[in-house]
Design a protein around this nucleic acid. Structure first.
Length: 586
RNA sequence: GCGCCCGUAGCUCAGUUGGAUAGAGCGCCAGGUUGCGGACCUGGAGGUCGCACGUUCGAGUCGUGCCGGGCGCGCCA
């Protein structure tokens, strides 16, 4: 509908230009906008073309706007009213039947309303979470999980072929420390080693004992302190008894810890409704020779130099602030080298676009990976980074202490499960709260609000309740033997109240919202939009004195039931984009 | 010190490739209404869009410089 209008305006502009002696043809058309104005009094759509042309033609914008209206006419029955407004806007009101046609379209398209083929089936990869399996996922990972998943859903909805991938570094020191931590706890439980004193664990500057009460202290200085480490050790002890005392930390301890923790991580993601198509890891890149090959190719490209026994990427020459180490003097790689190899593999797998969702602490890394990719002669523009700021927890405006130190952070599971005297957060509410803000903003997670089960207070439930209400009305209709209208029998002409037209107009925006959210990599647009739809629909239903859906006039009742179905369609499709359930009753 | 991000109502935050009188939720004030499904409806107060210059017919949006906050600036992981 908006597309039709744009074409009509283009044609009218072309005639106007020809008359004014401007350049004919599409080249002479300004890059004008046709938007739904903020204020309803400014029409269904507003166009700024006259303002853009005024300078070029040397004529007053209002005069051009009047000319545009004249040439536009009723645009083949599309436009009911047009006026010049403000400095030279053209405000347009569509003929009523166009809005009614929109309702029919929503009903007939159903689940595909709002989807498009703009992506043309091109392959895109979204990589997210990617936390190393050293412990449970934190709330910050949760934001990334939801953000990445919703972005993937947006790509799917706009016609891309999406792969969700989780990549983790398992070749470096971090996983070895994990194994050593488990081994130390195992030995402590067997009475073969002593646990390090808590003061030393909490304070880096305190001395670290080698022995305690005659027993050796094996726990690594920067080891993982969470209770789950001891639990893994206990399970190993239950399974193997004391038979593992001679095993190295980097062997069975590490493997078991990794497997179990990864299992927990996957279970957590499952609870949130987040699925991955592929898990990949750093070790495989080494095993397949990808890392070495990248180093060779960078060397061949002349982008590598030696200094102090280390191998450096000449990123300064590529416009970055400094050079960075690829291979340490000890022979081990930094993360940068395998990261470059990893991204080359992604591009080799044929992705048109690769989006990495990462926390703000990775902001500095992206450019170096891209520089490496560019140095390999590949198109770095196909790699995008979506960085999200951190999450803080608050309740009633008061910040919840969330120490980043060691293991004392809040995990997703803790939040979902709640505690003895605090209810858990539902996965749907968790998802909504996590996509509510744009990625670049700090996210204040209001625990009190997220736990709230009153739909009028909790914004996540407010949306779901709006959806459930459409089913509630249908149930009532069924009980009275009233049939729901089919798309082709919808007589929407009976919807003429301002709030009804406003609602319909809002429903019509959905496809643009999805498109914009996908293009901007900004799922929060969907969340805000749904809030607006629900914010129109809930009061509409509530105010039965003014407009009862199941009233006595059969024709009007049928039209309002059609509106109900259209609202349901948009809410269900939108909730689907956020990965939230669309319940039929609450 | 350098780089990236953020600064919008009392609070938490939206604000479409630059558009008209800057919005929402929560909170606050006044009045009305009472449940097709569970407190909703109407109105109101509340803003130098961090500050200052600049570009433009037009700036919350773009540019430059300051101020304030976050993150990052290792052969760490």
């Amino acid at each position: 509908m908006r597309e039709q209008l744009i074409r009509a305006i283009e044609a009218a502009l072309a005639r106007l230009l020809a008359e004014s002696g401007g350049q004919p043809g599409a080249a002479g058309l300004p890059d004008f906008a046709v938007e739904a104005p903020r204020q309803a009094a400014h029409g269904d759509f507003a166009c700024n073309a006259a303002l853009l042309l005024a300078k070029r033609l040397g004529r007053p914008p209002r005069e051009l706007a009047a000319g545009l209206i004249e040439h536009l006419g009723d645009a083949g029955g599309l436009v009911a009213r047009a006026e010049v407004a403000g400095p030279g806007f053209v405000n347009l009101w569509l003929a009523g039947r166009n809005w009614h046609g929109l309702l029919q379209r929503i009903l007939s398209e159903g689940p595909s309303y709002g989807r498009s083929q703009a992506g043309g089936g091109r392959p895109v990869q979204v990589e997210f979470v990617s936390a190393n399996p050293t412990g449970p996922l934190s709330v910050g990972h949760g934001r990334q999980a939801i953000l990445g998943d919703c972005l993937a859903r947006l790509f799917e909805a706009t016609g891309w072929k999406v792969q969700r991938e989780y990549y983790f570094n398992d070749a470096g020191r971090q996983m070895r420390v994990l194994g050593e931590s488990v081994r130390a706890r195992y030995l402590e439980q067997l009475g073969r080693a002593a646990p390090p004193p808590q003061q030393a664990l909490d304070n880096d500057s305190l001395p670290w004992p080698e022995t305690l009460d005659g027993l050796p202290v094996h726990f690594p200085r920067d080891g993982y302190q969470g209770d789950y480490i001891g639990e893994i050790a206990a399970e190993l002890r239950a399974q193997h008894g004391g038979a593992l005392t001679a095993e190295p930390g980097d062997g069975i301890f590490r493997r078991e810890a990794q497997a179990r923790i990864f299992g927990e991580i996957r279970a957590t993601l499952e609870r949130l409704g987040v699925h991955f198509d592929r898990f990949s890891n750093e070790q495989a890149l080494y095993a397949e020779g990808c890392v070495e090959a990248v180093l060779d190719d960078l060397r061949a490209a002349g982008r590598v130099r030696q200094e102090d026994g280390a191998t450096w990427l000449c990123s300064t020459a590529l416009g970055l602030p400094r050079d960075r180490v690829l291979v340490k003097s000890g022979g081990e790689s930094t993360y940068l080298l395998p990261d470059i190899a990893y991204h080359r593999e992604k591009l080799r797998r044929g992705f048109e676009l690769v989006v990495d969702v990462q926390g703000a602490d990775h902001k500095d890394q992206g450019p170096y990976v891209k520089a490496g990719i560019a140095a390999l002669g590949l198109d770095a523009a196909r790699i995008e980074f979506l960085f999200h700021e951190f999450v803080t927890l608050s309740t009633g405006g008061k910040a919840v202490k969330q120490s980043t130190r060691r293991a004392s952070f809040v995990t997703i599971d803790e939040l979902l499960e709640g505690g003895p005297d605090s209810p858990g957060v539902s996965p749907d509410a968790f998802r909504f709260f996590m996509v509510q803000r744009r990625a670049g903003s700090h996210l204040d997670f209001d625990l009190g609000l997220a736990r709230e089960t009153d739909w009028t207070r909790n914004p996540a439930f407010y949306l779901q309740y709006a959806h459930a209400r459409t089913h509630g009305i249908e149930r009532q209709a069924r009980e009275r033997g009233i049939a729901m209208p089919a798309a082709d029998e919808l007589q929407a002409g009976h919807l003429s109240l301002p709030e009804e037209l406003e609602l319909i107009r809002k429903l019509g925006e959905f496809p643009e919202v999805v498109e914009r959210a996908a293009a901007a990599r900004a799922p929060h647009h969907v969340a805000y939009y749904l809030r607006e739809v629900a914010g129109l629909w809930n009061p509409y239903v509530q105010d039965a004195a003014r407009h009862r859906v199941l009233g006595d006039d059969a024709a009007q009742r049928s039209a309002r039931l059609g509106l109900t179905l259209a609202v349901r369609t948009v809410l269900a499709n939108g909730l689907g984009l956020l990965g939230m359930g669309a319940p039929e009753r609450m």
